[in-house]
């Protein structure tokens, strides 16, 4: 008898306990990925006039399954010096967030690598260094002078076709010999553009 009483008490307690755990039907808040870079725009402006060439890589679903959309606005002219600039955006937020600000604030932890490949007759040169940017930590310009690569020049020679790979590394070895292999670090963004010089 005692046994039955015990068992039934427990069974009853169990029912109560299940009954209490009613869900509150509140929906979770969505998360907008903060660190995503969706869009990279490389602008190449010829010195002394001519058509500006814009290279864009856009991946609005970030780390999602869709591959980035790559566009190249036109061909480069031979024997021309282009002033280059890179702009990074996070377009999952409205208005789109300019990620350059964060890169500049941590210029000593970042570097763009502009690698010409596949027989393209062109060279790139860094046009900025860390001391051009204000450190987010100290509020003052960096004192170190390693290259960053937000601003650069691209110099073309003869007509040819090939690639320009733009890679942003986080926490690379600085200074480095300008190759990705030596720099190490983590890739924040990378895209290879097919270009033609005519």
């Amino acid at each position: 008898m005692k046994t039955i009483k015990f068992l039934s008490t427990i069974a009853f307690a169990g029912t109560l306990f299940i009954a209490c755990s009613d869900d509150d039907n509140e929906n979770p808040d969505p998360v907008n990925e903060e660190e995503t870079i969706t869009t990279m725009t490389v602008t190449l402006i010829p010195q002394g006039g001519g058509d500006t060439v814009t290279l864009t890589s856009k991946d609005l679903d970030g780390d999602g399954p869709n591959a980035p959309d790559i566009t190249v606005s036109g061909n480069l002219s031979a024997n021309t010096i282009y002033g280059g600039g890179v702009v990074l955006l996070n377009e999952t937020e409205t208005p789109a967030e300019n990620v350059n600000e964060e890169i500049e604030g941590e210029a000593d932890e970042h570097q763009f690598f502009l690698i010409v490949g596949g027989g393209l007759n062109a060279t790139t040169t860094y046009e900025d260094d860390e001391s051009d940017y204000v450190s987010a930590e100290t509020g003052e310009n960096f004192t170190s002078t390693n290259p960053v690569g937000i601003a650069f020049t691209l110099t073309t020679t003869d007509a040819s076709s090939g690639t320009l790979a733009v890679t942003l590394r986080h926490e690379p070895k600085k200074p480095n010999d300008g190759t990705l292999a030596d720099a190490g670090g983590e890739t924040d963004i990378t895209q290879t553009f097919d270009l033609t010089i005519q």
Partner: peptide, 21 residues
């Protein structure tokens, strides 16, 4: 007999999409 109730809460304050909902 066994009864179990479990609740998982993934904090959205991370600024990173939830791996586990």
């Amino acid at each position: 007999l066994l009864g179990r109730y479990q609740e998982n809460f993934a904090n959205p304050a991370t600024g990173v999409r939830r791996l586990i909902p």
